[in-house]
Amino acid sequence: MKTDDLIDMLARGPDVRVDAHRWRRFLVPALLGLAACVLLMQLLLGTRHDIGRALLLPAFWIKFCFALVLSVVGAFAVRKVSAPGAKLGGLAPMVGLPIVALWGLAAWVLWQAPPDARAALVWGQTWRVCTVLIVVLAVPVFIAALVAIKKRAPTRLRTAGAAAGLASGATAAMVYCFHCPEMSPAFVGVWYVLGIAAMTLVGALIGPKVLSW
């Protein structure tokens, strides 16, 4: 099917609307990767003991929605750049908008906080492991994204790999929210973003090697 996809995409252009069957090619690996990510989180870390109370706090939903938005943008990027000759188009600014918004909120929170409390808002208690755990949890989603991309015969391999890294890192951050005790937007704006950025960089580096066809 990869050769057929290539011929079809070259004939009709990379921006053609995909049908339901092609969406399923991405949906199934995505759901499997997400399920594996959740299972890995439960096996390694578990859900925070006070998750019921955390779900009532706006700060939890801020960090969750931040990761969710980036995960959705990453998923669309994966689907888009997997086609031969495809470009990100308007998706690139959409990656930066939630990050800038979060950093703006973090700056406001730090400005409102007493000077002696600002360091704790940035470093929290888990800064040593947060980024690493996001990267570890992202692995199954990353593999699933690479499998889905490779089936479509991409030509921009580095960009496609970066898109897979972005999607997997953001999805892992979203799942990690249910374990992480940190609530400060400043913490999320540093250590969550670093975890997502690390996966994006990994994807860009290994994309040309694993996605070549």
Results as ranks from 00 to 15, higher is better:
Lys2Arg: 13
Asp8Cys: 01
Asp8Asn: 14
Arg12Thr: 13
Arg24Cys: 08
Arg24Tyr: 11
Phe26Val: 02
Pro29Asn: 09
Ala30Asn: 05
Ala30Phe: 14
Leu31Thr: 09
Leu32Ser: 11
Leu34Arg: 00
Ala36Ser: 13
Cys37Trp: 08
Leu40Asn: 01
Leu40Ser: 13
Gln42Cys: 08
Leu44Val: 14
Leu44Lys: 11
Leu45Tyr: 09
Gly46Tyr: 11
His49Lys: 14
Arg53Thr: 07
Leu55Phe: 10
Leu57Thr: 11
Pro58Trp: 07
Ala59Met: 10
Ala59Ser: 13
Phe64Ser: 02
Cys65Val: 14
Cys65Ala: 15
Phe66Asp: 04
Val69Asp: 08
Ser71Pro: 00
Val72Met: 13
Val73Arg: 12
Val78Ala: 06
Arg79Cys: 08
Arg79Glu: 12
Lys80Glu: 15
Val81Pro: 00
Val81Thr: 14
Val81Gly: 02
Val81Ala: 02
Val81Cys: 06
Ala83Val: 11
Ala83Gly: 10
Gly85Phe: 11
Lys87Ile: 09
Lys87Met: 13
Lys87Tyr: 05
Leu88Val: 09
Gly89Met: 12
Gly90Lys: 05
Gly90Ser: 12
Ala92Cys: 00
Gly96Met: 05
Leu97Met: 15
Ile99Trp: 10
Ala101Cys: 13
Ala101Lys: 03
Gly104Tyr: 05
Ala107Ser: 13
Ala107Ile: 06
Trp108Pro: 06
Trp108Gln: 15
Trp108Ala: 14
Leu110Arg: 03
Trp111Cys: 04
Trp111Val: 08
Pro115Tyr: 09
Arg118Val: 06
Ala119Ser: 12
Val122Ser: 04
Gln125Phe: 12
Thr126Arg: 06
Trp127Lys: 07
Arg128Met: 12
Val132Cys: 09
Val135Cys: 07
Val136Leu: 05
Val139Gly: 03
Val139Gln: 06
Pro140Gln: 02
Val141Asp: 05
Phe142Val: 04
Ile143Tyr: 08
Ala144Asp: 09
Val147Gly: 02
Ala148Met: 10
Ile149Met: 15
Pro154Leu: 12
Thr155Glu: 04
Arg156Ile: 01
Arg158Thr: 12
Thr159Ala: 04
Thr159Tyr: 00
Ala163Tyr: 10
Ala164Pro: 04
Gly165Ile: 03
Ser168Glu: 09
Thr171Arg: 05
Ala173Val: 09
Met174Gly: 12
Tyr176Phe: 04
Cys177His: 00
Cys177Thr: 12
Glu182Lys: 03
Glu182Asp: 03
Glu182Leu: 06
Ser184Ile: 11
Pro185Lys: 04
Pro185Cys: 11
Gly189Tyr: 10
Tyr192Thr: 04
Gly195Ser: 07
Ala197Arg: 00
Ala197Gly: 07
Ala198Gln: 02
Met199Val: 07
Leu201Asn: 02
Leu201Ile: 15
Gly203Gln: 01
Ala204His: 06
Ala204Asn: 07
Pro208Trp: 09
Pro208Gln: 13
Trp213Cys: 14
